[in-house]
Design a protein around this nucleic acid. Sequence first.
DNA 1: ATATATTAAAGAAATAATTCTTTATTAAAA
DNA 2: TTTTAATAAAGAATTATTTCTTTAATATAT
Lengths: 217, 217
Amino acid sequence: MSLKRKNNKSTQVPEPTLRRLPGYLFFLEKVREKGVINISAPTIGKELKCDPTQVVKDLAVTGIKGKPRVGYNTYELCHALEEFLGFNRVNEAFLIGAGNLGTALMAYQEHQTLGIKIIAAFDVNEDKIGKHVGGIHVLEYNKLFHLSNRLDVKIAILTTPNNVAQDVAEDLVNCGVKAIWNFTHCNLDLPDNIIVEDISMSSFAAVLLRRLNDSEE
Amino acid sequence: MSLKRKNNKSTQVPEPTLRRLPGYLFFLEKVREKGVINISAPTIGKELKCDPTQVVKDLAVTGIKGKPRVGYNTYELCHALEEFLGFNRVNEAFLIGAGNLGTALMAYQEHQTLGIKIIAAFDVNEDKIGKHVGGIHVLEYNKLFHLSNRLDVKIAILTTPNNVAQDVAEDLVNCGVKAIWNFTHCNLDLPDNIIVEDISMSSFAAVLLRRLNDSEE
DNA sequence: ATATATTAAAGAAATAATTCTTTATTAAAA
DNA sequence: TTTTAATAAAGAATTATTTCTTTAATATAT
Ligand SMILES: NC(=O)c1ccc[n+]([C@@H]2O[C@H](COP(=O)([O-])OP(=O)(O)OC[C@H]3O[C@@H](n4cnc5c(N)ncnc54)[C@H](O)[C@@H]3O)[C@@H](O)[C@H]2O)c1
Ligand SMILES: NC(=O)c1ccc[n+]([C@@H]2O[C@H](COP(=O)([O-])OP(=O)(O)OC[C@H]3O[C@@H](n4cnc5c(N)ncnc54)[C@H](O)[C@@H]3O)[C@@H](O)[C@H]2O)c1
């Protein structure tokens, strides 16, 4: 999306592949629950409507080998995918900005299955401080600095208003945060080693509206 | 993301470009407010930290021509970008599922600047029906069918639980909806001419966690 | 006026990602 | 046991996207 991060020596897994992996994982978990032991790439491709060789290439990043005429072992694959994505670990995260979107994310239980656990939320607004949503407490923003000294939290979810996002992001970096999930549409300017994942509504809207326009000729 | 839609004769604008365009628009609006009349691609590139020739190529899709040694006219560009993206039109949308995420999106005023206007929300839960958030009423789900006959709404925002998403999506298509902004992580199986824009938390989590892992070697 | 530096535009090259092809493996059928 | 069909894996070819290079235009300075 923004600037490419090439801070790793060995060839990184391509982003399109990475984005597709959770889809495979969820599908595989579903069929595994139904008792399916083995599944082939063509079958996965048919269900998920994508190219079977793409499936093979994507799944290869996990290191799991399939057997000809049998396919992949669903248990092995699920496990390897979870491991590879980090979904089976508990990756603790702070949430900053307990507003409309922030509280929706706090209430969102599925984060657990994505390996991300919001352990505390922070806000500057008196009305928000002290509340708790989905078992997560909203703390005074200033407490972020004290808490981050004790805890080693590497991930932050940023849901403040746009105009304070840059300042808050800089605070987060100073608190030892290494990756920011940015829901604001502020173009964060941070050191290169900080991972920023922008989830920009506007980009989605742009693609949707334009494609809709295209389809109407 | 999922399957490529190639339903348009002329070469479509590449998706990566489309995703970047709103970023240019917001930046340009900001500098225009400061009274900047002209701006060059290298300047934009420096601010947004991207390649200047990329900027030139991206902006070329609007049809706006820049002048050597001067750059682009900010007014012209903003206008052309809004026009191209459809952000200056009122694209009416239905929202289905007025839960945590749904109500956050209803309260989200910035949709207006993205050209999307939620005109009504629908839910099956008695407790939700009748409420209104951000000036938008939550109606009984069944009213969707009546209303869609009268109104010609082409866009739907899907924020129901995952397990009903497919059924609801099919209803929406039957109601004449042409584009679905899908926030569930259900793999919607719909006719090819329907535009589905998946905003999958899991994909973002995957990229974020994996890159974090990569950076820690 | 003339020269100079800046820059958009167009095209070429490089890189990344996807799709196609071939090969080798293996379970099941004959 | 031998044959057959299915399929993973590896690599080639294609396609898409980004980056680099050249060219032409033009405002500013000389
Ligand atoms: N609401 C949505 O559905 C939605 C969707 C996509 C993106 N976004 C983006 O998410 C961000 C938040 O949106 P929202 O609708 O939740 O807004 P909001 O105003 O409801 O929430 C923002 C919260 O941040 C708090 N805050 C303000 N300054 C702060 C600071 N310096 N430190 C910590 N907290 C601070 C506010 O008190 C408030 O509780 C915006 O950038 C918006 O563009 C929102
Ligand atoms: N909460 C989040 O932050 C978040 C973030 C990303 C994605 N999501 C996804 O968005 C979806 C909704 O999440 P949520 O947290 O808002 O859940 P939620 O349970 O709070 O909201 C779902 C709403 O849909 C309504 N609903 C149920 N069945 C319906 C039907 N057949 N027709 C119409 N409405 C129906 C429910 O009454 C409820 O109000 C889920 O798929 C979730 O994975 C949520």
